[in-house]
Design a protein around this nucleic acid. Structure first.
Length: 210
DNA sequence: AAATTGATGGGCT
DNA sequence: GCCCATCAATTTC
């Protein structure tokens, strides 16, 4: 499958959020290629109080106002990074949060990165490990927004504001199309809690939360 | 099985 | 100073 181009991202944000399900997120690095099928997304739009661009443009959210196909990486809870696909024309701050992946390529590299993150993370997690050889460990590689950025080796400093159209992080067209989509409310918010902007592949075991 | 909580730092008001 | 688009252990039913 080929890398998606500007036309895919330059569309209604909630439409893109739904169309991303079944597509494959890829990161090419010197250590190897890691990739996974997008199984869960959330849309953040203009007028939505939970959207980071709700108030005004700042240094943190500047990438959200970039052209469609820009990557927005932000730090959350002092520790984790989350990634968004920027949609809508330049100057409009809307994006799609990628919340979970079904790993397809570079499984061992993903596990290495997750295990390295445990070693250098919170004291209480230093002895944690993830074993991709077990069903549970495999599921645990990318089933959350903070986990998948670790597994794919995505860095806020290096990758925020990069281009999905020309960069080393990109998205391939749909590799999975035969599924039912569930539409529901978003996770972890205190604002806009009732907006049904979360989408996931029904029955997929890699979705972060039912 | 579900709810609670500790870790912990940058960005905004 | 206050607010989090999380993760995983712990506590509680």
């Amino acid at each position: 499958m080929e890398r998606l181009g500007a036309a895919f991202y330059n569309n209604d944000t909630l439409t893109v959020a739904q169309q991303l399900l079944g597509c494959e997120l890829v990161h090419e690095t010197p250590e190897g290629l890691t990739a996974g099928i997008i199984v869960e997304t959330e849309g953040y739009v203009t007028g939505d109080p939970a959207c980071h661009a709700y108030r005004r443009q700042t240094t943190r959210n500047a990438a959200m106002f970039g052209p469609a196909g820009t990557l927005y990486v932000y730090q959350i809870y002092n520790h984790y990074n989350c990634i968004n696909v920027v949609t809508s024309p330049e100057g409009v701050g809307e994006a799609v949060l990628i919340r979970a992946l079904e790993p397809t390529e570079g499984i061992d590299l993903m596990a290495d990165r997750r295990n390295e993150a445990f070693k250098t993370g919170f004291e209480r997690y230093r002895n944690n490990t993830v074993d991709p050889g077990t069903k549970k460990g495999f599921r645990n590689l990318c089933n959350g927004p903070g986990k998948l950025t670790i597994a794919l080796g995505i860095s806020r400093q290096r990758d925020n504001n990069s281009s999905l159209i020309t960069g080393t992080i990109y998205i391939r067209g749909p590799v999975q199309t035969d599924f039912d989509m569930v539409t529901t409310t978003r996770i972890g918010l205190t604002q806009g809690v009732d907006l049904p902007y979360r989408y996931y592949i029904n029955g997929n075991p890699f979705v972060s939360k039912k």
